[in-house]
């Protein structure tokens, strides 16, 4: 079995790294390239760039950030957010990404998953599912950063995406995202036991114990982390340069602590997991 994979999830808006709560209320934290380099140098296993405003081809576009990052980091890099077609996927891969995450376009047109996995190989295609728990206990897939209902049941969609040729499922609990309350373990385990392909748990990590739970109780193969690491490295790499162009920079000016997470370094988290008998790189 492969080691637990730590994936730093970098939400990108224009030229900036941002972070919200429930995927909303985005704060600017710094430059994605700086955070990416820092995580690479400190032993992160993989990076995901999520373009929260889906601006693939604009000025200062995601493609520029991918090009810059992928020429100086030598670990897998995934990119998602607003990819709608085979051409979009090709453009992102040509800029140096190793994998793409599909959400909105895949739900609108599941055949895109089949076509993309035939074209680029299954292991290149990650289907990202952003789920919200419903009053009856089921989970529904949402799109547009958790704003748009789809009527699609999340676990069934994961199974179908795997049949269509997805190589991995990334499951995000919108309810937990940015809250630091821990991954939704029931959701993660439902998806992990429904599919034979690896599952990445996302949304909610606020303490190192949460990461351990995602693997031992949620059966996640990989964990996406953002706040848990971002706020810890802000002092090292955050808040340099100019930020007039985009987003809410009040947080960077004030630098009040972020109380929802217990700041941790990657080394501390890995040490904790090894103590649980889990293999880490």
């Amino acid at each position: 079995m492969a080691a637990v994979r730590f994936i730093a999830r970098l939400d990108v808006k224009g030229p900036n790294l941002v972070k919200g709560v429930h995927l909303e209320g985005l704060r600017v934290l710094g430059k994605p390239e700086d955070f990416a380099r820092h995580y690479y140098e400190n032993g992160i296993d993989e990076l995901i760039f999520m373009d929260v405003v889906a601006s693939l081809y604009g000025r200062n576009s995601l493609l520029d950030i991918i090009r810059k990052t992928s020429s100086e980091i030598f670990i897998p890099l995934s990119v998602g957010g607003g990819l709608r077609s085979i051409e979009d996927i090709r453009a992102v891969l040509a800029a140096g990404a190793d994998k793409v995450c599909l959400n909105t376009a895949a739900i609108a047109n599941p055949e895109l998953v089949r076509e993309a996995s035939r074209c680029f190989g299954s292991s290149t295609i990650v289907v990202s599912i952003e789920a919200i728990r419903q009053p009856d206990g089921s989970y529904e897939a949402y799109t547009d950063n958790g704003r748009q209902k789809t009527g699609v049941e999340a676990v069934g969609w994961a199974r179908r995406a795997a049949e269509l040729g997805a190589g991995e499922i990334m499951i995000t609990s919108v309810d937990r995202e940015g809250t630091g309350q821990g991954y939704d373990l029931a959701l993660t385990k439902s998806v992990a036991s429904a599919v034979d392909i690896p599952v990445i748990a996302c949304g909610g990590a606020g303490r190192k114990e949460h990461v351990g739970d995602a693997v031992t109780q949620g059966w996640a193969n990989a964990v996406g982390v953002a706040s848990l690491l971002h706020y810890n490295v802000l002092d090292v790499v955050g808040g340099t340069g100019s930020y007039e162009e985009e987003g809410n920079i009040e947080y960077l000016k004030g630098r009040r602590g972020f109380s929802h997470v217990e700041r941790s370094s990657l080394g501390e988290i890995k040490e904790y997991l090894r103590g649980l008998g889990l293999e880490c790189r």
Binding site: M1, A2, A3, R5, D45, S122, S123, G167, E168, A192, S193, D196, I197, P198, V199, V215, T216, W219, N221, A222, G277, E279, R281
Partner: peptide, 20 residues
């Protein structure tokens, strides 16, 4: 071949990740 890994967790295919 898929199988059962440590602590009863399933071995996933494709195998994706870091190995010694």
């Amino acid at each position: 071949e898929p199988g059962i890994g440590p602590a009863g967790r399933p071995l996933k295919i494709p195998e994706i990740g870091w190995k010694p």
